[in-house]
Design a protein around this nucleic acid. Sequence first.
DNA 1: CTACATTAGTTCCGATAAAGGACAAATTAT
DNA 2: ATAATTTGTCCTTTATCGGAACTAATGTAG
Lengths: 406, 406
Amino acid sequence: MRNTSPANVRVARRGTSREINRQIALNLIRTRQPISRADLARLMDTGRGAVSVLVNDLIAEGRVFEGATGEAPRGRKPKFLYLDSRRRCVVAIDLRPTRSFLMVTDIVGEPLVGMTSFPTERDPDRLVVELAGRIKDTLERHPELGRCDGVGVVVPGMVDRTGTRVLFAPRLGWHDVAFQEPLAARTGLPVVIENAGKACALAHAWGVQGEAAAPADFVFLSVSDGLGVGVVTNGQLLRGRHNAGGEFGHIPLALDGPRCACGVEGCWEAHVSNLATVSRYLGRELDSGKPIPAEVAALTVEDVISRSRQGDALAVAALRATARYLGSGLAAVVNAVDPARIYVSGEITSAWDSLAPIVRAALDERTLEPSRGHAEIVVVPAQGLPRLRGAAALVTTPAFAAPVVA
Amino acid sequence: MRNTSPANVRVARRGTSREINRQIALNLIRTRQPISRADLARLMDTGRGAVSVLVNDLIAEGRVFEGATGEAPRGRKPKFLYLDSRRRCVVAIDLRPTRSFLMVTDIVGEPLVGMTSFPTERDPDRLVVELAGRIKDTLERHPELGRCDGVGVVVPGMVDRTGTRVLFAPRLGWHDVAFQEPLAARTGLPVVIENAGKACALAHAWGVQGEAAAPADFVFLSVSDGLGVGVVTNGQLLRGRHNAGGEFGHIPLALDGPRCACGVEGCWEAHVSNLATVSRYLGRELDSGKPIPAEVAALTVEDVISRSRQGDALAVAALRATARYLGSGLAAVVNAVDPARIYVSGEITSAWDSLAPIVRAALDERTLEPSRGHAEIVVVPAQGLPRLRGAAALVTTPAFAAPVVA
DNA sequence: CTACATTAGTTCCGATAAAGGACAAATTAT
DNA sequence: ATAATTTGTCCTTTATCGGAACTAATGTAG
């Protein structure tokens, strides 16, 4: 149930119905392609005539094209419709504390140019110059990509509601940094930046072709250098007043726990990040105040996982502890937002077969009755490149959004 | 930004634009009454002709009526429009663990028949019989109230998404109790039940005349026998998969804290409820497993507050501790949903002048940077009867909801 | 091989609603 | 009294949905 916003009303104009139905048709083509006009009409529960007009409109705009003729058991064969993603692309960038990633995708997030990676330049000004250069290089080296619709950047930190400034990214050492405008100016392209967890949640909320559609209430967890969390409720991303909503990474798990990059102690992130797991394996306490010891930096979670597979008892214990903390923190998330599903991504998911029961047990221990045991946990494998797809989704989804009315 | 729901599309029909604009007009009349057609047209940024048609429609339906002629400095005087709340009423019921409250309001939640209260019958079957009797009595004794649009009931517990069953109400000892249907059958009226915190949040999201409109992201806190929490994000109530979302009352504050009615230890609710404050004042530990000691039951928070005013050091300390816990728990809420405003209601607000700084300090201590210090705390006085108004809102708001499209 | 059934897509007309201009009604200032 | 101003209604124009009729393409029964 939605209220009409008394301050900022959006009256339905003469063309509003058309606009609504055009976006519905476009989204049905996006999610069900290939599809015929007749099938669209059935899905939309309206006449074929009305749909034809909408589709021809979309074709004229270059958003959809008519492709192969389909097969039918009887009667005239349908002409299939496809989303027109030809000669258009999107640049996706995943900024991480030590290493960053760049990929070019089509408008539904499918990779067109394979991922490249490079060490992260932590000075914002120099980073903008480097990124602009890499984007320009990649696009020039692949003229077949066509027009670039924009650049999506995910960052490990909070971004303001207008999407122009990085408010706080402790792991990058950034503090109210203007990032969107400089990069847009240097590249001449539209640039969208967003917190990594929120971007991943957004991508899942919009559904990826072939995969099962995401429910209206879910949580996305990105366990890597930090802990990115994105929350979707009522089918919409939870942003809050300053776009800092859903930041469950910094809820307290233990008041006397390890020191977090954000400054306080005992945050969930400080218990479950890759760095936390590696530190725990090495028997060192994580303290973000000091630089990361070389010994810790040299080892990755993947190393810990492979050692645990080889029977290293310390590695097994470190991973199990992380799993238990993951579940305890998730309990707070489940009580707070009551999600139907929890997506988990990150390097640690490669050991999920052995960790899942531990996470589940810790989760169920502290969840309230109605949702206990009901939140399905789904692993998002790293091969799917969820963060880069999230970055691409930042650019591509606005064109598919439902018009704002009432 | 909203997605079109690929599974359950709502195509714009011929009458959809009209429906949208009719609800906009109705809501503007609700929030700005009295108002002329010409002013409506200006607010909606459309022609007076279009508005006239909508308004005449609403008048014909009996939703709006044309009242007094207004004053204007020059030109023809406008005919004022009002929401038609004549000869219609709503029954609002606030179920609490020990005592319950009943009131009759008009369709915007204004009291028509003063509040009555009675001890709470905890057996659901007998309670339904008693409530139905009281509702019937009240409506028969006041024939001037006219038609009753329905009964809204707020409960201290979780209600399922369909609004028919109380899933879990620890303080009532209820456990998956069918409540809506029996009461509807006995009264012959539409019945809506909802968690008290959610209902209060809903009422505020819809705005009360005269008061400042609520922001799109806010939290409502009802501190009484338990701790009711309602969360609104993007202007919509956070419900989650099982309508158990926003239940921050049971996030852990300390793993070894007092025992909560929900069964686990250290919940926020167990630190800040009225019972917790009274127990703390008496130096007893709260343990929900046992019945409430007579000594505790005899004393109310109001008593503790008045004793603190008289200089009772123990009372002051007990209240200050509650305030500090309130702030600590709020920090988790603020990090999770980043609200622009926090409404606080409950008996303890009568001592807010001295407690506010303590709450604020504890809150700011653990909130993340972008939202730190930015969440405004607003007290909702008990005289405003927020829970009963919430109950009334359950019945009245659906008629004002924006049509679902896309 | 032909007629018919079936399905896809197009075209056209009627109904409905917003957009906007013309106009009458009501009122105040000059 | 006259002009100016504002409200509210009416009517025409334009855009959209809804549905029927029509054309196109294809398979199947006789």
